[in-house]
């Protein structure tokens, strides 16, 4: 676990010093929310209805951008080989890159939730349940995005290929996340939302385990 933290914190330090990645994610995210709010508003009903969808589209794109960024840090500086020559399993590289994204994505998700509440009338009365949904959904999405970003890291056109490969596999995660968010926004009892959380948890565990096991193979030259 020490290696995972070391890699994640080093990447976070690089990202904070560079700022380009986080700023582009924030710019995309802000523009998207404001354009959608302007297009669907000002009446409350259509904005509230669209809120879960808009929130998850924004989070999905943010996660995809950050996953590409996680490996671009290594490819730009030609440092991926150093990580691959570290003794022991290569799954640490995958888990470190995943943790790096989560350290950025989770605060950004909370910010997205606040902005969605402000612009789209998403009710925050059940904020803890919404945050749980965001955490489970983002974890599932980022686990697959990290895997594919690593697979495509050395290929030209990776920015085009990543969404094409990724979106087909993360449909269950996005679907469950959106349905859980809609249920919470509509005030459904937690017992009716809980099955979506269970589904997300299962997908998260399966995706993380499978990705960590397969990751060393995709990095071999």
């Amino acid at each position: 676990m020490r290696r995972v933290w070391l890699l994640a914190l080093r990447d976070l330090r690089l990202e904070v010093r560079d700022r380009a990645g986080v700023l582009s994610v924030l710019a995309f995210f802000g523009v998207m929310l404001f354009v959608m709010a302007l297009a669907l508003g000002p009446e409350e009903a259509p904005l509230r209805r669209a809120a879960p969808g808009v929130l998850w589209v924004a989070l999905a794109f943010m996660s995809t951008l950050l996953a590409t960024r996680a490996f671009a840090l290594e490819v730009e500086e030609n440092t991926l080989d150093d990580l691959l020559l570290t003794p022991g399993g290569k799954e640490w590289v995958y888990l470190g890159k995943l943790l790096f994204q989560l350290l950025l994505l989770l605060p950004l998700s909370a910010l997205a939730l606040l902005l969605s509440a402000g612009l789209f009338y998403l009710p925050l009365a059940r904020a803890p349940a919404l945050l749980l949904t965001l955490a489970l959904g983002v974890l599932g999405y980022a686990s697959v995005a990290t895997f594919y970003a690593g697979l495509l890291a050395r290929l030209r056109g990776r920015e085009v290929l990543l969404p094409l490969l990724l979106f087909s596999l993360v449909v269950p995660v996005v679907l469950a996340s959106v349905r859980a968010t809609v249920g919470l926004a509509e005030g459904l009892p937690l017992e009716e939302v809980a099955p979506w959380w269970q589904l997300l948890l299962v997908f998260d565990l399966v995706y993380i385990t499978a990705s960590a096991l397969l990751f060393p193979l995709v990095l071999e030259g």
């Binding site: 080093r10 330090r13 690089l14 010093r17 560079d18 840090l73 500086e77 030609n78 440092t79 080989d81 150093d82 020559l85």
Partner: peptide, 13 residues
């Protein structure tokens, strides 16, 4: 361990 030419480092560290 492999030392490439030029060596690979993160320039912001």
């Amino acid at each position: 361990l492999f030392l490439p030419n030029p060596p690979a480092f993160h320039r912001r560290l």
